[in-house]
Design a protein around this nucleic acid. Structure first.
Lengths: 222, 222
DNA sequence: CGCTATCAACTCCTCAGACAAGCTGACAAG
DNA sequence: CTTGTCAGCTTGTCTGAGGAGTTGATAGCG
């Protein structure tokens, strides 16, 4: 699948390149639209669209009457892209870091509502593991893991986990295709154990169990 | 500082709102430019700029001859924004998750080059702690912590750490302002200890020392 | 019936020109 | 020194024109 790049996108890339190369410092004002258009050999509206694209990526900001200004020296990391490129093992290790710490904190901070979440999501997961289609099982599994991270009551950790979810989901789909025996579905006990440790307010145990579970997953794919 | 919103930005927001409300599903094709322009009561180039902005935010994708398509139901999380809003404690706990796991993996995977990095960055940090201005000290401290995460040889963890850096930097600036005694600068030993554990290929010790160090920092701010 | 080539209608892409709206710095008046 | 005015710059918006790519319907063929 080849992809043609419109002039406006090429112009945006060129501007981004120049910003990265230090041609314009942070906070600097770019030349006027007509000047830029002449420099790059394109029309003014093309430059406007390029600037608008970089504005969407929070690199440029234009102010009517004043000019276009650099507000970041590089595009914010496109996490979905980073994670797509990353090795599955790398992603799993990132998840391991987040969920282990999440389980540890959850053991100290879990509320009655969190425990209720555990009951629901674990029951769902058990049913799904028994006879549901793959995608149901995947969603049920993810729901429990998310419940654990949520119980840590840390917005950053939750956000990190959510960022990982699409990538985890794809990895699980691939794993399930290669696994005729449905071996992985049998680790319901490991999930119950994590929930038990959090319920018992034992941070170290919860962290250890989360770590062991995810380490086992990592071993099974590598 | 008031901020006027150009029509193109308002149009982009409106499109984003409609996408979020389910008017167009994931992968759906939007109406043509002329139709949208008429619907929103703006010119065609305004619509084009709005679409271009959302393309920059990876929500829309336009294909010449085919149309404009929805490729995400909401704008990718602007991590810098998320981290700015987040509580410092939350950020520190995220960092704790990443760096503890980073130290653990680094102990298994560190190369001679990594050890060299430790020597350099630790020496720098020692010098900076003694008499350098605050911003030098902060950069030296961050450089060592980054060296630890880098030694884990996991692209995802490194990327996560880099995302956190601007927020950590701001937090450290605030901390240093409140700390006349420069107490925090005296924990060079703790940093050396982390490096030693990684050098000795002891994952558990490295993780424990990283954890203890960051836990201490967390305690000091809360 | 199934397959392929053709093509018309639709789409986005780019440009040019015109005018509106906003900002900035110079300069004169007080 | 402060304030008001204004010319010249900037970006914002609209319109009309033509170019280029995609898609689905249709006619023709085996």
């Amino acid at each position: 699948m080849i992809r043609r790049h419109p002039l406006a996108e090429q112009a945006a890339e060129e501007l981004l390149r120049r910003i990265g190369s230090g041609e314009w410092a942070l906070g600097a004002k770019l030349p006027g639209e007509t000047t830029l258009a002449a420099q790059l050999g394109v029309g003014r509206s093309t430059i406007r669209e390029a600037v608008r694209e970089l504005a969407g990526r929070r690199v440029l900001e234009s102010r009517q009457g004043a000019g276009v200004f650099v507000i970041a020296l590089q595009a914010a990391e496109d996490w979905d892209k980073v994670l797509r490129k990353a090795d599955i093992t790398d992603v799993l290790e990132g998840r391991l870091a987040i969920e282990t710490e999440g389980a540890r904190l959850a053991a100290s901070r879990r509320t009655p509502g969190d425990l209720k979440n555990f009951r629901y999501t674990l029951a769902d997961r058990k049913r799904a593991a028994a006879n549901a289609p793959d995608d149901w099982y995947i969603e049920a599994d993810l729901a429990f893991h998310r419940a654990v991270v949520t119980a840590a009551h840390n917005a950053v950790l939750t956000e990190l986990f959510d960022t990982f979810v699409p990538r985890i989901r794809r990895a699980m789909v691939d794993m399930l295709k290669l696994d005729d025996e449905h071996r992985h579905r049998h680790d319901q006990a490991a999930h119950e154990a994590i929930a038990d440790a959090i319920r018992a307010k034992d941070p170290e145990l919860a962290a250890a169990r989360a770590r062991d579970h995810l380490s086992a997953v990592r071993s099974s794919v590598s």
